[in-house]
Design a protein around this nucleic acid. Structure first.
Length: 708
DNA sequence: GCCAGAGTCCTTTTT
DNA sequence: GGACTCTGGC
């Protein structure tokens, strides 16, 4: 029983599957059967007699790895026992955990998630008394952003600030001080953040020859998915693991690079042939996912990119139906129109084959309410993660205390449930717990706060007799439930259901430590599999690598998609473009873009006019059909050119079949202050959106610029 | 000195 | 809706 590779793959895919010795780079356009290629290559290796445990599959999410391994098992008809698959981070976590003594944490370490790291940064700042009383001082989120950006891009903080956040230049020294304080805190408390996982692994590999050799010998075949979204450390890790044999396959698509904000470096994919000498390059260009009209449109999105991507995907799937651009009157009515559209699509496809995509997690709120009201099930990806929800963190911190009594973060969170105990008292209690001669203070506190006594007794009891994670979870829940109901009187039933789910996950583990690690690394239990007949709501980032029969993209307006934060720097705007490209290429048969004409501003409670996304304005009008919401409700075709912002962007209107590239047509201009710039689009009747090198995007009234 | 509750501002994307 | 600051009360 053998797989007929040649018939089930196209020529390029077949080549990639056959090429097992030495480095290969597969440039795989959207929907070009990338996953299929990896899956068949895995199967091929195993059929060739490679021991599955010699294969390492690094992907962007744990879910992607599991899916690939599962599909491989299906076509092979046998289990792939021993193959390592997961994210760089989870691989690093597992490897570091087996070598804790070598990285200076003989007693183990605790993994921090984003929230933990932010809390440390906040405390470091307040301990150092930086920016006291300064209301416009950068928030902990921003502080941490600068720190991790600097690490991920491996450039000093001042360089990052200069390039990406010039308005914060006066805080550079503070950033550096806080960064040092943060590093020190982590070191003192045996804490490790996401970035540390990668850097410590890299360091371990380069310093520990025996270990590196051992891992090189073990992982003879390495495959890395989504290579365009790896950063420099990740590339080094691959290099060190692959060693001289260099049996590495990297798969990626430079047009789909959407993680530059986190240090991903497209140069990795471009430099792959240099790093791995003699690398074979294979391009997959036939698209098997989308019908041709959708591809025609997405090719146009790429065409206006500043960095040209040399690819034109083609499809053999015909369709009469053009993608639709729909103009609701407001973002409120958008929710209703989208709901109607979902119902309509639901008659044609199962609901889990319909996805609504958006730029940021909060954008789906209106829609979530509307769906709940009419009883349509949905499943949300992205936005607030399961393990970040306050109540889940509460429970996880209690579990962490079972494992590690030195986990200050966990103490802080757990003790603050106690009335009359705040940050200062927590620190005192923490100290009293860990120093001799402070028993008296502890005893007074225990008598003063019954809740504290209960907590400490409970933890002691659990630690005294070892139990399975699920049993510990059960005891912790008994303890936590009263706190939960008191803290969240409005919605505790919902949260309780989430915690029960957590209990079920715990049942799959024999070790508390790996349960906690997995959860912070990729632990949304809802993401495990698609729920039957639940429409999918997802951020574009979380939609990466997935596909649906029908895709709806909402809020395609300026400041939402592209995000407001990305409007200042041309390279950020370019990433937004690729993001739009990724979003549209998720669609197989049907694609709908919603462009609300007004957006509710919760700051002043007024609905304000919104400009259509430049990525929509640029599209040649022959690539899509246009509908708008009638004031009487329902939809009508958009005929009047003047009434639509889109038409304003296309002076040639309905006959614009020939004006494929509005940006080229609009050309360049000159401004007294900003100098020469490229006109991106015409907005409103009398303004231009112009990209000025060094100044970024501006909207300027036409009278103030001189056309060149 | 420390905690809790009221009042104010701003909301990207993720391992 | 959350994170942060400010202020009154213990």
């Amino acid at each position: 029983m053998s797989i007929d590779y040649e018939n089930e793959l196209n020529a390029a895919q077949f080549e990639a599957v056959q090429h097992t010795q030495g480095p290969v780079l597969v440039i795989a356009g959207a929907g070009s059967g990338k996953t299929r290629t990896i899956v068949y290559r895995l199967a091929h290796l195993v059929e060739q007699g490679v021991d599955p445990s010699q294969i390492l599959l690094l992907t962007f999410t744990r879910k992607a790895a599991q899916e690939m391994l599962q599909r491989t098992e299906t076509i092979l008809g046998r289990s792939l026992h021993g193959t390592s698959g997961g994210t760089f981070h989870s691989f690093a976590y597992a490897t570091l955990r087996m070598n804790t003594h070598d990285i200076g944490f003989p007693n183990g370490f605790t993994l921090l998630d984003r929230g933990d790291s932010e809390a440390i940064v906040r405390d470091v700042r307040s301990d150092l008394q930086l920016g006291k009383g300064d209301k416009s001082y950068p928030k902990k989120n921003t502080l941490l952003d600068m720190i991790t950006k600097s690490r991920n891009k491996e450039r000093p903080i001042d360089a990052i600030v200069e390039q990406e956040a010039y308005h914060l230049a006066s805080y550079v020294e503070d950033f550096e001080t806080i960064s040092r304080g943060y590093e020190e805190f982590k070191k003192n408390h045996a804490l490790v953040d996401y970035d540390d996982l990668l850097f410590r692994l890299d360091q371990l590999l380069s310093e520990n020859d025996p270990l590196r050799n051992q891992l090189q010998a073990r992982y003879r075949y390495i495959m890395v998915d989504e290579y365009q979204d790896t950063n420099r450390v990740q590339a080094r890790i691959v290099q060190q693991l692959a060693g001289d044999s260099g049996n590495v396959m990297a798969v990626g698509d430079d047009a789909q690079s959407i993680y530059a904000f986190r240090g991903a470096n497209v140069a990795n994919i471009l430099d792959f042939p240099k790093t791995f000498k003699g690398a074979k390059i294979i391009r997959l260009e036939q698209n098997y996912r989308s019908v041709q009209p959708i591809l025609t449109m997405t090719n146009h999105i790429l065409e206006n990119a500043q960095t040209k991507f040399e690819k034109k995907l083609f499809s053999e799937l015909p369709s009469e139906q053009l993608p639709e651009v729909i103009y609701p009157i407001s973002d409120q009515t958008q929710a209703r129109l989208v709901t109607d559209k979902i119902i309509e699509l639901g008659r044609k496809y199962p609901l889990h084959e319909v996805a609504v995509l958006f730029r940021a997690g909060y954008q789906s709120y209106h829609l979530e309410v509307a769906l709940t009201r009419i009883g349509i099930k949905y499943q949300k990806y992205g936005g607030i993660r399961f393990h970040e929800a306050a109540h889940v963190k509460d429970v996880l911190c209690l579990l962490r205390l079972v494992l590690n009594t030195h986990d200050l973060m966990a103490w802080q969170r757990s003790l603050e449930h106690i009335k009359g105990v705040g940050p200062k008292t927590v620190n005192k209690i923490y100290e009293a717990l860990h120093t001799d001669g402070k028993e008296k203070y502890l005893r007074t506190m225990r008598t003063k706060h019954q809740d504290l006594d209960d907590l400490l007794n409970e933890l002691d009891a659990i630690r005294r007799n070892p139990m399975k994670p699920s049993a510990i979870m059960e005891r912790i829940m008994t303890f936590y439930t009263p706190i939960l109901t008191a803290k969240y009187p409005d919605d505790y039933p919902k949260r309780q259901a989430g915690l029960e789910q957590l209990g079920q996950i715990a049942a799959n583990y024999t070790e508390l430590e790996s349960f906690l690690g997995d959860l912070s690394l990729d632990g949304d239990p809802d993401e495990e599999k698609r729920k039957e007949n639940a429409v999918v709501l997802s951020t574009v980032h979380s939609s990466k690598g997935l596909e649906w029969k029908a895709v709806i993209i909402i809020d395609c307006v300026e400041d939402r998609f592209p995000s407001k934060k990305a409007m200042n720097r041309p390279e950020d705007l370019e990433e937004e473009r690729r993001l739009m490209y990724v979003a549209c290429t998720r669609a197989m048969n049907s694609l709908h873009l919603f462009v609300p004409k007004t957006i509710y501003n919760r700051f002043n409670g007024v609905s304000e006019p919104a400009l259509p996304s430049p990525f929509v304005l640029e599209l040649p009008s022959h690539t899509f059909s246009r509908l708008r919401e009638a004031y009487s409700g329902g939809m009508e075709p958009q005929i009047s050119k003047k009434a639509t912002p889109a038409a304003a962007g296309h002076p040639s209107g309905e006959t614009a079949g020939s004006s494929n590239k509005p940006s080229e047509k609009l050309g360049f201009c000159k401004h007294k202050i900003f100098g020469k710039g490229k006109i991106i689009a015409r907005v409103e009747p009398n303004k231009y959106r112009i990209n000025f090198p060094g100044f970024g995007l501006k909207v300027i009234i036409e009278d103030y610029v001189e056309l060149l």
